[in-house]
């Protein structure tokens, strides 16, 4: 595209037949995907017209297309030296520099080119995280499902969080929040013993910290210690009675521990605080089926399926419904649910 658009600039220049012949051959080869021939022809054109910016930018563009970033840089620099306002050259040079890891140097070129997405990446890689977030957020507005943008934006947020975490540790290393954050990170990385130490320290400093008991409880669930998990979730629900998450987690653990009535009460409380979360509805359905309240269980499981069609939650809900209908003697319904369950299961395999 760039090479084609530059044809008019060639035409404005004093073009010899030989120069025109090489430019035409280069454009033709490029259009045909024969990049090596295009490079050869554009190189010859640049030799014949060294003061012609378009000749250099064409050569750089083909190198860029070939992903030969190292060779693209020199002709693009030359083109910009001859004409700093040459269309597309700033963006291409910025892209080539960024591809080779010269993120800092690429920023000014990408800024001039207004290349928001690449600029966001360049800013991220050159350590200007907040600016990177702004650029990438803006780019994502235009292309909301772009996997590269989503990836780099998540990286940017992660690094921003890391910066804030480092600042917290530097400025208030002994604070409850520093201990909590360290505990959260360690818990997420599966280092349970160390995480428990720091989370415990956080609670010792500030017993009213919200969320710490939930993280501790989740760690206990992951290690199969449901008794300790119940203790932690119960502490959180007592401290934060309005937390739907804590109520759901407590209810779920109580169900596994055989305290079905109390589990239902907690799960219903969670559902009242934050209605129709499919995880809560599934647990409620299971708990109600356990007590023999088939009608309520069926209702809850259908509400899961109103929101989930192909997920693991949907798979579990169909399986539960199949069991429920089988017990109720509704064979056709049971067979249908079992088929739906098996369909999801087969897709997930």
């Amino acid at each position: 595209m760039i090479a084609v658009s530059l044809l008019s600039m060639f035409l404005a220049f004093q073009v010899t037949p030989e120069l025109r012949q090489h430019v035409d051959a280069g454009l033709k080869a490029k259009a045909a995907g024969d990049l090596d021939t295009a490079i050869h022809e554009f190189k010859r054109a640049a030799e014949l017209a060294p003061a012609l910016p378009a000749a250099h930018v064409n050569l750089g563009a083909v190198y860029l297309e070939k992903k030969d970033y190292a060779n693209a840089i020199q002709p693009l620099r030359k083109a910009l030296e001859l004409n700093p306002d040459l269309p597309g050259a700033q963006g291409m040079l910025g892209a080539a520099l960024l591809a080779l890891g010269y993120a800092g140097e690429s920023v000014s070129h990408l800024e001039k080119a207004g290349a928001g997405n690449l600029l966001g990446v360049a800013l991220l890689e050159s350590g200007r995280i907040r600016d990177a977030v702004d650029q990438l957020e803006a780019a994502l507005q235009k292309r909301p499902d772009d996997p590269d943008l989503l990836y780099y934006l998540s990286q940017a947020h992660e690094r921003l969080a890391k910066q804030l975490f480092d600042r917290l540790r530097e400025t208030s290393p002994e604070s409850a929040r520093a201990q909590q954050m360290l505990g959260d990170v360690l818990a997420a990385s599966g280092n349970r013993d160390e995480a428990a130490k720091h989370l415990g320290a956080a609670l010792a400093l500030r017993p009213d910290l919200r969320g710490v008991h939930v993280v501790l409880g989740e760690m206990y669930v992951e290690s199969g210690d449901y008794e300790s998990a119940e203790r932690e979730f119960r502490a959180e629900t007592q401290m934060v009675p309005g937390s739907a998450t804590a109520a759901y987690k407590l209810g779920s653990v109580l169900l596994q521990r055989g305290q079905v009535r109390e589990a239902i009460a907690e799960l219903q409380r969670s559902n009242a605080l934050l209605p129709d979360m499919p995880e809560t509805l599934l647990e409620l359905g299971k708990a109600m089926a356990t007590t023999g309240d088939a009608a309520s269980a069926e209702k809850m499981l259908h509400r899961v399926l109103d929101q989930e069609q192909t997920s693991k939650l949907a798979e579990a809900a169909h399986f539960q419904l199949a069991q429920l209908y089988r017990k109720l003697g509704r064979s056709a319904d049971a067979d249908r649910e079992m088929k739906l369950f098996q369909g999801i299961r087969a897709r997930q395999k």
Binding site: S223, G224, D225, Y226, E227, V253, L255, Q256, R257, G258, Q259, V260, K286, A287, A289, T290, Q323, R326, K327
Partner: peptide
């Protein structure tokens, strides 16, 4: 009736044996 119900939760066995 030829069918079984999952009773690990209701009997408390699930919570007791998750680590084992």
């Amino acid at each position: 009736d030829g069918h079984f119900s999952y009773a690990s939760n209701a009997t408390g066995l699930a919570g007791l044996t998750a680590r084992s």
